[in-house]
Computed example of a mutant assay.
Amino acid sequence: MEQIKNWLIENPTLFSIIKYVLLVSVVLIIIQIIRRLLRKHVLDTTARYKSQKGIEIIGYAVLIILSFSYFTGSIKDFTLAIGLFSAGIAFTLQELILSIAGSLYIFIVKVYKPGDRIEINGIKGDVIDVDSIYTTMMEIGQWVSSDNYSGRIVKLSNAFVFKGPIYNYSQDFPFIWDEFNLPIRYGSDVELAKSIVIKIASEILSEYTINSKSQWKDVVNKYYIEDALVDPTLAITLTDNWIQFNLRYIVDYKKRRAIKHIINNEIHKEVLKSNGKVNLASTTLELIKIPEVKIDIKQNNN
């Protein structure tokens, strides 16, 4: 060992080259270790490919910086080079790191879980899977009306939990308020119309009303929120064309469209049975006066 040490001292150029080769080898080994870890733990093909490419780019950039600084003597501290390398990795893989942090946040805080209906980053759907990188959703809405599935499966980065609001339709309280307007013609029996609407809504929605009351109490106890009325309510507004009935009620978040159809259909049946006492309105035009039209016909005797 003493002879090797003396030989290296006598040959400083060779010693410098050996140090440089060892330094490059360490960087290359670190790059390969990180690539293997990514290949093993990142299951998504796209994310794995991009992260491995990012590591390669960062590695080559670090090698260039180290080579330049080594031979010019600008950076002599190896720990500084390692710091630059780590910063480069963090910058290149910031989206991946944020996604992994997002998955931990979703799991610990219980932001949502598979089976929940959420809206995040402008995308609405049912969560069907949550992994370390992505949240997978079955999309609803878009080109289809109401809350029906569009048929598209959406993969969304978990990083979005830190970038905007998350609307959860089912967490803690799996019910939502819905409403629709019903136009009643002037001259109809308003009291009879009110009783028809409230009676049908109460019968159809009784199960949801009973179940929602107990769960709403839990929500009130858990959060700083005032109590709310979950029974069906009816508000009346007089318009230029008709009496507008606004029915507001609570319903299961997955059955909004179906329940609205049933309520409308039953109300229509009862209105027809009222023998003209209650009539649904539509946009109409009333002619107050028809202007006189004078026609002057001149006959030509020639």
Rank of each mutant, 00 (worst) to 15 (best):
P174W: 01
A235I: 15
Y253V: 14
Q244R: 06
I89D: 00
S99I: 06
Y208V: 12
L192P: 06
P174E: 08
V27H: 05
E286H: 13
G164N: 08
I97V: 15
K254D: 14
G122R: 12
E292L: 14
L84M: 05
Y149C: 00
L205I: 11
V154Q: 03
S67A: 13
I184M: 09
N158P: 02
R36W: 13
Y253C: 07
S157G: 12
K254C: 07
I34F: 14
L280F: 11
Y169W: 03
I290V: 12
I65Y: 11
T135Q: 09
W216E: 06
A61H: 00
V251F: 07
Y208I: 00
D77P: 06
V230T: 15
V278Q: 03
G59H: 00
K5E: 12
G276T: 05
V111W: 01
I198H: 07
S157L: 01
E203H: 10
Y105L: 15
W7Q: 12
I290R: 10
N300Y: 02
I295H: 09
N148C: 02
K110P: 09
S206P: 04
Y20R: 11
W143L: 02
N168F: 02
I123S: 01
T209N: 05
I259M: 14
D252S: 03
K260H: 04
S74Q: 07
D44P: 04
D178N: 15
V62M: 11
I57M: 04
G59Y: 02
L63H: 03
A101C: 04
Q142T: 03
T233H: 04
P114N: 07
G187W: 07
T72Y: 01
N211M: 04
I288R: 04
D240K: 10
V26E: 11
D147R: 14
